[in-house]
Write a protein that binds this DNA or RNA. Sequence first.
DNA 1: ACTTCCCCCGAACGATCGTTCGGACGGGTG
DNA 2: CACCCGTCCGAACGATCGTTCGGGGGAAGT
Lengths: 201, 201
Amino acid sequence: MQPFDKRLDSLLAAAAKTFAERGYHATSMRDLARASGFSLAGMYHYVESKQELLFQIQDRCFVLVLEGARAAVATAPDPESRLRAFIRHHVTFFASHMAEMKVLAHEEDELTGTMRAHVRRRKKEYVGLLTELLTDVPGEHADPHIAAYALFGMMNWIYTWYHPAGPTPPAALADELASLFLDGYIAAHHATPRLVATLGG
Amino acid sequence: MQPFDKRLDSLLAAAAKTFAERGYHATSMRDLARASGFSLAGMYHYVESKQELLFQIQDRCFVLVLEGARAAVATAPDPESRLRAFIRHHVTFFASHMAEMKVLAHEEDELTGTMRAHVRRRKKEYVGLLTELLTDVPGEHADPHIAAYALFGMMNWIYTWYHPAGPTPPAALADELASLFLDGYIAAHHATPRLVATLGG
DNA sequence: ACTTCCCCCGAACGATCGTTCGGACGGGTG
DNA sequence: CACCCGTCCGAACGATCGTTCGGGGGAAGT
């Protein structure tokens, strides 16, 4: 890897961390200079603007989740385990790239023009992948589009509360969320009591 | 209602709309003046700072959801229907107060000092209410804390994609999300095919 | 008529923003 | 040696930020 790319990577990593902590608009280029060790003007040797920093972070992160998700899904034999593999991958990837994924989820609408369109296209691809997986599951169930957004909400929301170093390791969280979505909070484990309670009410 | 409070309300409403559209930090006081019809300096007659605008929006909104949720839950006879009532209320309230709820969900960490602590307390109260409802549901199920955050994620994420005037009315969305969370995406409607597919794989 | 008080605003304040400019430094290359 | 080029930065640019200042207008009270 060329020294240029190495330096750019370290800049992007520092920027992602700072954007995640303080938010895109609340972070100044001077903050980023301080956090990255670059000088204020020095950063412009690697990037054209503050917005391009956000774009690079989001685009690179999207490429990684996308190819990771495709790889995770590829080995699964049936629709449900493909869905489970997608969820597992998304959550564990999120947990191991917290800063970048928070920036991806939380600063969605801050890009403009071509960069915005570019990231939108990637997002559409990723959402489309999940929607397909949901549609492929046999049986009559909730609207796949609503289900996809509900699932993404469940998974992406973790940046507001989850700490990978806390009591729940990422893999355990992934399994919990996968089961919660796939099996349901009540019905899967206690279908009968629920029905009784419903009929009794 | 005093004219002062009426004017303040219209300022807060315009501010909530603008914050929701452009984000808190990306919105200038001049933007708010333009959107509300006040003059730049005139707004400071009703509010001490830009941050207090955000605080008032968030605090008032939290008071409304909290008392609305308590009222919705109060009439339900059993734990599961209380939970369902909470979800229904949260989603329909969200849909009818999109701007304020987006600001509440998306600009969570922008307050500082006393205002931050104040809103945090309200949030803790609201999260605590849902956690209790989840804990009250009989049977062994997922960790209520994780389930609470997962459910909030599912519900709060709607500000990123849902349009109340679109094909899915708020009440229908509320029911879809409630069923999705309570009954599960697969197991509740198709427990057997799911088991077969899993065993077959 | 005079005072009071709330409501309101044009204009300006100092600070900070993203970005740019002109040049310094150092290691190849001729 | 001179020359170039990738790397880097101190200092400054104009713009815009949140906020404040000093005062005007108009209704109410006396």
